[in-house]
C-alpha cells in the first residue's frame, strides 16, 4: 500500500562532503542560492513567531509589550511564577489537560489497535463501508459533532466533567487510531500470523506475541498523535469544559479579557502548551508522514 519507500528525511544518495551542509552535486550555483533563499526565508517565517513567544515568556515588567519590540532584555521568570502562584493557579488546568489527553489517547489506542487489526484482517463483505464510516467519523467537522454531543451530554450530566471531555476527544481519536493502526497492520504480511498459527499459537497469541511487537512504531505514533490532537483542542473544551474541567488552551484564551491581555503570562502558557507536543511530535518524526496522511502515504 505504500506509494513511497524511502524515509522522508533520508538523503537520496550518499553525501559527497563529510562536514557541513551539502547539495546534490549536479546543482548549479544559481540553483544552490535559490534553494537556500527559499529555505532561509521559510525558516525565518516559521521560527520567528516561536522564538518571539519563547522570548516573551521570559520578559518581565513592561518589556513584553514595549512599543519598540525588544530582542535584548533582562530575562525574568516572573510570568511563570505568576502562573503558579496567586489567584489563577495553572496546576488544575494542567491536570485536566493531562487527564483528558492521556485517557482519551490511551482508550482510543487500546480499542483502536484491536479494531484496526480486525479491520486489516477481516474478509467481511461490507469492509469498504465500514472503512468509509470510520474515516468520515474522523473527518466530521467539529462544529457538527459538538452540537448533538452538547445535547446528549446535557441530558447525561456530562457537561463540565472530565469523562465528558474524554468522550468528546474520543469522537475523533478513536476513528483516527482505528484507521491508522489498520494502515500499520496492513503493512505486516498475514503469512507471519499464519506461521504462528501453524506452530501452535492461538489467533490471539499470534496477534499479541507476533504482530503487536512488530507494530511498536505504529502504536507509539498513533498514541502520540492522539495525545497531540486532544491536548491541542479548543473547540470542544470551549463548549464542554466548565470550572471543574478547564484545559490549558481554555486557560490561555481566558487571559484575553475586556480590560486587556497579560501577554507575558500568555506567552508563558503558550510555551507550556507547545513544548511537550513539539518534543513528542518530533520523537515520531519518521512515521509522521504515515500518521498525518492517515496511512495513505508511507514515508518509511
Amino acid at each position: 500500500m505504500s506509494t513511497t519507500t524511502a524515509p522522508a528525511d533520508a538523503p537520496a544518495r550518499p553525501p559527497k562532503r563529510s562536514t557541513g551542509l551539502s547539495f546534490d552535486q549536479k546543482m548549479t550555483p544559481g540553483g544552490t542560492v535559490v534553494t537556500w533563499v527559499v529555505l532561509g526565508v521559510f525558516l525565518l517565517w516559521t521560527l520567528i513567531p516561536l522564538v518571539w513567544m519563547l522570548l516573551g515568556s521570559f520578559k518581565g515588567g513592561d518589556d513584553v509589550t514595549a512599543a519598540d519590540p525588544k530582542w535584548v532584555f533582562t530575562p525574568s521568570l516572573e510570568n511563570y511564577v505568576g502562573l503558579f502562584t496567586g489567584a489563577n493557579n495553572l496546576l488544575p488546568y494542567i491536570w485536566h489537560s493531562v487527564v483528558a489527553a492521556v485517557v482519551s489517547a490511551g482508550l482510543s489506542l487500546v480499542l483502536g489497535t484491536l479494531a484496526g487489526y480486525g479491520l486489516s484482517r477481516t474478509r467481511m463483505k461490507r469492509k469498504s463501508d465500514l472503512s468509509f464510516w470510520i474515516i468520515s467519523t474522523r473527518m466530521a467537522p467539529i462544529a457538527a459533532v459538538v452540537l448533538p454531543l452538547f445535547l446528549m451530554f446535557r441530558f447525561a450530566g456530562l457537561i463540565d466533567t472530565l469523562p465528558g471531555l474524554i468522550l468528546a476527544y474520543m469522537t475523533f481519536n478513536l476513528p483516527f487510531a482505528t484507521w491508522l493502526m489498520q494502515a500499520f497492520f496492513a503493512e505486516i504480511p498475514p503469512s507471519l500470523e499464519e506461521a504462528a498459527l501453524v506452530s501452535g499459537c492461538t489467533r490471539w497469541g499470534a496477534f499479541w506475541n507476533v504482530i503487536l511487537p512488530l507494530s511498536k512504531a505504529g502504536l507509539v505514533t498513533t498514541g502520540i498523535l492522539c495525545l497531540v490532537f486532544a491536548w491541542n483542542d479548543y473547540a470542544f473544551a470551549s463548549v464542554f469544559a466548565g470550572p471543574s474541567s478547564q484545559t490549558l488552551p481554555i486557560a490561555a484564551s481566558q487571559l484575553v479579557t475586556q480590560t486587556g491581555v497579560d501577554w507575558g503570562q500568555l506567552t508563558a502558557i503558550g510555551t507550556i502548551v507547545v513544548v511537550p507536543m513539539v518534543v513528542l511530535g518530533l520523537a515520531v518524526k519518521r512515521w509522521l508522514v504515515t500518521g498525518l496522511s492517515l496511512g495513505a502515504v508511507t514515508g518509511e
Binding site: 528525511d9 535559490v34 527559499v38 521559510f42 490549558l248 490561555a252 502548551v273 507547545v274 518530533l282 498525518l292
Partner: peptide, 26 residues
C-alpha cells in the same frame, strides 16, 4: 528545495515541522 539538500535535511525538516504541533488556539 528541501529535497535538494542532502546533509542537514533532517534538522531543517524538524524545524520546518514545528508549527504543526502548536495548538491552533495558541
Amino acid at each position: 528545495a528541501l529535497h535538494r539538500v542532502l546533509r542537514g535535511r533532517g534538522l531543517v525538516l524538524s524545524l520546518v515541522l514545528l508549527p504543526m504541533f502548536v495548538a491552533p488556539v495558541i
